[in-house]
Design a protein around this nucleic acid. Sequence first.
DNA 1: GTACATGCAAAATTTTTGCATGGGG
DNA 2: CCCCATGCAAAAATTTTGCATGTAC
Lengths: 144, 144
Amino acid sequence: MKTRRNTIQRRVLLEEIRKSRRHLTAAELYETVRDRLPRISLGTVYRNLEILTESGEVSRLGVAGHETRFDGVTERHPHYRCRVCGRIDDAEGTFSVQIEADIAAASGWELGAPSVEFEGVCPACRASTGARPEGTRPPGDTVH
Amino acid sequence: MKTRRNTIQRRVLLEEIRKSRRHLTAAELYETVRDRLPRISLGTVYRNLEILTESGEVSRLGVAGHETRFDGVTERHPHYRCRVCGRIDDAEGTFSVQIEADIAAASGWELGAPSVEFEGVCPACRASTGARPEGTRPPGDTVH
DNA sequence: GTACATGCAAAATTTTTGCATGGGG
DNA sequence: CCCCATGCAAAAATTTTGCATGTAC
């Protein structure tokens, strides 16, 4: 792993991400940290978000840097998404999501169907990079 | 529902989305349909993708127009995402994803943890728009 | 004929990058 | 001191929009 300097910017960014109970965007985070670091730049925010994601200290929700893709099959089904090239495949095999009865009731949200997406590395990228992603888990696992 | 004209552009776009087994991006789709409609514009592609998504004829994978959000809690947990304002909340309550043993084996993908995201409308947007999303399902449901 | 849709181009949004300088180890 | 990280600005990438014209109904 690459050696990283322990900069104030990165420290403050991580602190603010953890402090906030919201899930902030890069722009929101930029505005937030500007109270403490008035000279920080948006570029630094993005660079550190990348670094922190890489190191596993924060996780990104959604698919940054990748274009939206469209599916002609409307019925919900799980997908694989390649974290390297952005490619999406249908996931074959079976899976199921059991939504407990209390999940929607308490939240105040009007909920639609769940999306399930497995982040991973596609065969092509796996061949060219040889990288084995951290967080890989054996099949048959259950997540709560 | 708004009346929509049955234009060639929309017809061809839908056809190509369905014909492709890949999950195309707007740009890829643009290039594809240009063989048949050389004068089509990217704007038209985006506008129709929006319309087709709205009408439920295609589904969008990923979140257009919304910035990526970051989470200080690294451990995977399910989220709600508001389709109106892009807000993301942690999903409370319990749920589980049972991944069948054969899902990874056959695919050639190196898989990480699954993400589960419930698309819906947050309390604030529900109050202001009053819109009840189609596809709403009762809690306790199981999806395959 | 009317109103929605299109093509085109400009703009808006979100993210990345080049470069000179700064500062952590 | 070295070299990774920063600030700043420019650019890239993706998506949206204004406007005049076209066309489905």
